[in-house]
Design a binder for these strands. Sequence first.
DNA 1: TATTGATGTTGCATCCTATAAAATGCATGA
DNA 2: TCATGCATTTTATAGGATGCAACATCAATA
Lengths: 224, 224
Amino acid sequence: MALGRFATANRSRTAHEYVLTTLRSAILGGTLKGGTRLVQAELAAELGVSTTPVREALRDLATEGLVVMDPHKGAVVRPLDIAEVREIYELRMTLEPLMVRRMIASVGDAHLAEAEQLQQAMETETDLGAWVDLNRRFHAIFSELEDGSRLAGILAGLRDSAAPYISLSLEARPLQVPEANAEHKQLIALYREGDEAAIIELTLQHLASTLAAIEQAHEAGLIG
Amino acid sequence: MALGRFATANRSRTAHEYVLTTLRSAILGGTLKGGTRLVQAELAAELGVSTTPVREALRDLATEGLVVMDPHKGAVVRPLDIAEVREIYELRMTLEPLMVRRMIASVGDAHLAEAEQLQQAMETETDLGAWVDLNRRFHAIFSELEDGSRLAGILAGLRDSAAPYISLSLEARPLQVPEANAEHKQLIALYREGDEAAIIELTLQHLASTLAAIEQAHEAGLIG
DNA sequence: TATTGATGTTGCATCCTATAAAATGCATGA
DNA sequence: TCATGCATTTTATAGGATGCAACATCAATA
């Protein structure tokens, strides 16, 4: 099942946590596609732990919404359909503005400098997987400002659920990358100015264009 | 710890599910108060299962946000503070209108008749615990119309998290009950008419007044 | 203050049981 | 005779119990 790539870069405090983060990365990154059966014994053997922490991790992913579990039947990677992606984006477009307002209040120069560094790295990054990872870290800088709040948790869950689709969409239409780079640059500038309305507008526009790209890729048959 | 009252009325398919629903009810109903330590061995003995399903249930509750778990430290019932209650209501006031729009589209006469029955039962109910349960079932009729959607899941989580506070607030200010009864009656009428704007307005007003009641009870020192 | 030891509790591995789905055999009807 | 439906067995896999090891906490001591 080729989880080794994820399994190595991971020094968790507990086996359960290790399995959880490994599986989550594999699902979000698209390595584990929707519909894949997740057999406890197989995963345990592959990751070098017993089935107990694997079961716990699968349950966590189930309540997070990334896998589906039925009693005595087992766990399956949740196969999102396009309707659910649309709902996720509807909710994000409703909630992200609230998040923006809070982040403006708590963002500092250090954060913006860090964001700028990542932004520049993304400009020159050619590997798509690496770019996606940088992108995640970029947005994490802002999200972590409000870490621990309900809103941040909900949005994180929504973003995670749509992440596999974004990866696929980027593969299908790589020209989205320069667009996103430009938007990130603009975003930093707007945060420097503290222009709330403009940030919200840019955010909504970014979400709308991402959803449009996913839908196009879906209609073209590039996404299940 | 007196979980027996919940433990009996529960015929789950798995021990894990049984523990999960039992603990959740106890937390939502206020039997297990915020800050209470949840020791796996104790719970297992009390519920007549081993520690394995208990741990799984605790993890579920942790990702639901009802308990906090630290590695090797254990689980504690999450002590909500008033700030978090405010955030929950802010989010609900943002999201419930979306939910209303969907529910109007899918509600039928049978649902409204069922809601009316519950509404009438609540008019005459004197026991507070029983009233709270009827209230939950009343709102569940509407929520279940959209069951399975992301939005419904998020809202269910938010409502659950605030539930202990609502219980406490009702105990502190029982006059909220007739108010709520009147609002429920009005709600049914508005759904019959399909008046979207009015339903949303009433919903927001209901949320605002509930939050105000909780805050008053909090300021009066009746709520931790 | 730092260190060490005792204690309680979690976390994990192993073994066993319960369950659901698949496979097999049998009977019945065309 | 063959196909089809039903009952029964088999097998794969999830769920649960138990025992032990790892860890955090706190108290006692230097």
